[in-house]
Amino acid sequence: MAPLVWLITGCSSGFGQQFVHSILARGDKVIATARTLSRIAHLEQLGASTLQLDITSSQSSIDATIAKAISIYGRVDVLVNNAAFIQIGTLEDLQYEDWVKQFDTNVFGTIKVTKAVLPHFRERKSGCMVFISSLSGWVGHDACGAYAGSKFALEGIVEALNRETAPLGIKTLLIEPGRFRTNLLSSGNMKAVPSRIPDYADMSSEKMKGLAKEDQAQPGDPKKLVEITLDLVKGEGVAEGREIPLRMPLGIDCADELRTKCEETLRVLEEWGSVIRDTDLQR
């Protein structure tokens, strides 16, 4: 198989940077991007191409950057939408602008990058789109509503996108990490608003302490997640000879919480089935 060309967003740290290392180690080519180009300059020494890309820029600006990316090797085979940050705070404590910033990056920025790459994939009738979602795309934890909302939105958008593009020969993959040891909870990637409302004070304080303690202490190994993702895209390793799902939850905590939510949903459908179904107009 000819080497694949990967385009990755958010490569200054975490999963993005690990993708670059793992992709190059497998002999593929990678175009690494980040909001600040100097933060990924060292990746060029490893053999990556680098481009400045702020996914909150205008569609026309992103289109131009993607066109430049495609011109480097003449094509892009895999897009990995990885760039994101996490906003912490209760619904009452967060300002409207906080919600806009969260969705502007995690949802609308991802949409703009994908929209810029899709014409290239459609023309070639091939390509793979990887979206880094989260356990928060399934479960809304307290004081994480903005982040969970953005990931819930992403999951619905990508599910619809898959239905639109699968008949065109384009593959789609949602990776749903639990707690992995990345910089997501660092001061540069997490925006936290402690509650000023007495009713939420204790919960908010415990949440902030817990997240601070969790930073760089998460159990998940980013390299393992990235290697599994590469296997899924390339049909190698753990994915060889297996049907690839749209959604791939990864992490012990993710498996446990998803199972609990699915079981709760099935229980509601069972216990309230007659009420749920008895809603048609009577004729």
Rank of each mutant, 00 (worst) to 15 (best):
L37R: 01
S13R: 10
I86Y: 05
N189F: 13
M190T: 14
V76K: 03
D28H: 13
L46T: 04
A239E: 00
A160F: 11
G27K: 03
S61W: 05
L246G: 07
R196I: 14
I132W: 02
K112Y: 02
T9K: 07
T33S: 12
G137Y: 05
V193C: 04
S58F: 09
A201K: 12
L79M: 06
A83T: 07
T114V: 08
M203C: 12
L37G: 03
N81I: 02
C262F: 11
T260D: 15
R242F: 04
G145D: 04
I111Y: 12
L246D: 01
Y200V: 00
T110P: 05
F108S: 08
W138A: 10
E243P: 07
G178Q: 03
A192E: 02
R26D: 08
V226E: 04
L266C: 08
E159L: 10
G220E: 06
G273T: 08
E123G: 09
W138S: 12
Q17E: 15
W6C: 07
P194I: 00
S57G: 10
Y147I: 05
G149P: 08
S133T: 13
L135I: 15
G178C: 01
D63I: 02
N106T: 14
V139L: 11
N189S: 15
V268C: 12
L161A: 11
G127R: 00
T56N: 15
I70A: 12
E123R: 13
V193D: 04
E214N: 14
Q216D: 13
I70G: 09
S150V: 07
E164R: 05
A217D: 14
K223N: 09
I31G: 04
Y200W: 01
A201G: 09
L7E: 01
P119F: 02
L91G: 03
A32E: 04
V226N: 01
T229F: 00
C254T: 13
P167D: 11
A153Y: 02
I86L: 09
P249S: 07
D142Q: 14
E164H: 06
R242D: 01
P167Y: 00
L250I: 13
V226H: 03
Y73Q: 05
V100G: 04
Q45S: 15
A69V: 01
S49V: 08
Q59L: 08
V275E: 14
S204D: 03
I88V: 15
A116N: 07
T56A: 12
G137A: 08
R277A: 15
G16I: 04
L46A: 05
L51A: 06
H141Y: 13
D278R: 10
T172V: 06
S134Q: 01
A201T: 11
P219L: 02
